[in-house]
Design a protein around this nucleic acid. Sequence first.
DNA 1: TTAGTGATATCC
DNA 2: GATATCACTAAA
Length: 173
Amino acid sequence: MKRLDAAFFQRDCLEVAPDLVGKILVHRLPDGTELRERIAETEAYRGTEDEGCHAFRGRTPRNSMLWRESGVVYIYLCYGMHHLLNVITGEPEQPQGVLLRAGEVHDGPGKLTKSLQITKALNGGSFTDGGVLWFEDDGLRPALRTAPRVGIDYAGEPWKSIAWRWIGTKQAK
DNA sequence: TTAGTGATATCC
DNA sequence: GATATCACTAAA
């Protein structure tokens, strides 16, 4: 099984997001158990111009991960209950990332992290340094469809309705 | 449709 | 220190 390396993430988030759909997210627990789930849905958040991106309102302690190098794990707690998992893409100092919205089994960003037991403790880690989180590629290439991003009604046009969300359909290959 | 939840940012 | 906001979910 091939693990995705730094080169995979070191591209524009608009390329990485669709490529990530169909890959397998793995989380190894302290006791050695490996939880895995295939990614079914992603969204791209891109730069300080994107009004839906956390980076739009400037750099803060919470979102500083966006400015890190590709492959960095960015997790934050939303609405007091839900951990949302992102991976940083592109070059350092260029804030962009991909939100993992759903797995094949668990539909919804909060449910995905809950099922894989992903919490803030993993924030600031890396998907590419051989730690407890990584992606695997088993060669599956699901058919994709696009849609506007969810939950960013506060953003103006065109950001609110731009189709930077990718959803894998059942028909694989 | 609305309540719940708590970290974070922003405003005193 | 206080309040408003939020890349959500479950229950109704």
